[in-house]
């Protein structure tokens, strides 16, 4: 069944230069495998479209039931160079919660 990511996860996002990171945390331990299966770097990159000019990297933190996504080239140059309203990617975590995923 297709549901938004917000059904199984909460997030927090921020910046490091022109890279935005999004922490995706399972609301319950049993949701973690769903997140691992559904929230792949390819799908995250496609979801943000032209907002992400580089690659998306993913790291797993099973101890926290979480993944850490690095969205490279996602902040219009980042920091003080960027002309964007959200030059720090503060809102990207919330935006990702709309992504539709398959839930068992």
């Amino acid at each position: 069944m297709k549901q938004p990511l917000s059904t199984v996860a909460h997030t927090r996002s921020g910046d490091k230069g022109d890279t935005s990171n999004i922490g995706v945390i399972a609301l319950r331990p049993e949701y973690y495998p769903v997140i691992l299966r559904e929230v792949t770097p390819e799908r995250v990159k496609a979801f943000f479209g032209d907002r992400v000019t580089g690659e998306v990297e993913r790291f797993e933190l099973p101890n926290l039931g979480a993944i850490n996504l690095l969205l490279h080239g996602a902040l219009g140059g980042g920091g003080t160079v960027s002309l964007r309203i959200d030059a720090q990617g503060k809102t990207y975590g919330a935006a990702l919660l709309r992504m539709e995923i398959e839930i068992d």
Binding site: H10, R12, D15, N21, G23, I25, F59, G65, N68
Partner: peptide, 12 residues
């Protein structure tokens, strides 16, 4: 957990 993941790179 949210704060642990804030501005994190490679967690290892």
């Amino acid at each position: 957990k949210e704060q642990l993941l804030y501005e994190l790179g490679d967690p290892h």
